[in-house]
């Protein structure tokens, strides 16, 4: 993995300022946002992604939860899968995708 400068953004404005220093927002960007790491660090290990700066946005003061509507979920980039699931289930909603299928057909073999 190429080395990088690690910084932490405390609020969204700071993250946006840091992101504005990138050459481009697409491939080849030298600033990348870190929102957990599971889709970035694996690519950095393979030198697919080689950012010069990583901006950690996990502690941004933006509200962490997904705004829920009747039929859809709009998670923010730092919303975790688990927290989404917890919120949907606690509000009596249905889980999308495989989780819903498993819940519906849990007595049949997978």
């Amino acid at each position: 993995m190429r080395t990088f400068e690690f910084t932490r953004a405390s609020d969204p404005a700071a993250a946006v300022r840091a992101g504005a220093q990138a050459k481009t927002a697409q491939q080849g960007a030298d600033v990348r946002f870190l929102a957990g790491g599971t889709t970035l660090l694996d690519l950095m290990k393979l030198n697919v992604e080689t950012p010069a700066r990583l901006v950690d946005i996990m502690r941004c003061s933006a509200p962490p939860g997904p705004p829920l509507r009747a039929t859809s979920i709009s998670p923010s980039p730092r919303t975790t899968h688990t927290s989404t699931k917890i919120r949907v289930v606690m509000r009596g909603g249905n889980l999308p995708g495989r989780a819903a299928r498993d819940a519906a057909g849990s007595s049949s073999p997978p």
């Binding site: 599971t38 950690d56 975790t80």
Partner: peptide
């Protein structure tokens, strides 16, 4: 919370 520690940086 459970995390995959291999895809997480110590500095985070």
């Amino acid at each position: 919370r459970r995390v995959n520690s291999c895809l997480s940086l110590a500095v985070m």
